[in-house]
Amino acid sequence: MLVVSAALLAAITGRAGAQAAGASAAPVAQQAAADTALEARTNAVAGQLRCPVCQGVSIQDSPAELAQQMRDLVREQLRTGKSPDEVKAYFVSKYGEWILLQPRASGFNILIYALPVLVVLGGLAVIVVAMRRWTKPPENLSI
């Protein structure tokens, strides 16, 4: 369908670019795919970094100028082959751990990840024990 309409368009406008377009299509598509992938990686990293001039939003979400510039920097560092962790480490070396919107799961910070899980598990245990007791026949209920 798309091919047909493209051909029609070419025929109508009389452009003889169909051949050339076909030839260059593959590298362009590759380039676009690479751009999309880079953009996705940039968004992922930028979403983890806190905008220094805003309130609690990431540089991905913030419309502030500095946030945009930091996003550009993230993209550039990723393009030059840095890993997401290295990019984050760069920003931590400049702004401290403060810039990570998600605390590193190491040392004391583990608490913030472990405690909610423990609450769920502990609560489940309490419910199971309580239900065992509550579902016993009444005559055994003397506690």
């Binding site: 500095l66 510039q69 930091m70 550009d72 920097l73 400049k94 702004y95 401290g96």
Partner: peptide, 9 residues
């Protein structure tokens, strides 16, 4: 691009 500013945190 505020590159130096970001470098200085």
């Amino acid at each position: 691009g505020a590159r130096t500013a970001i470098d200085y945190g």
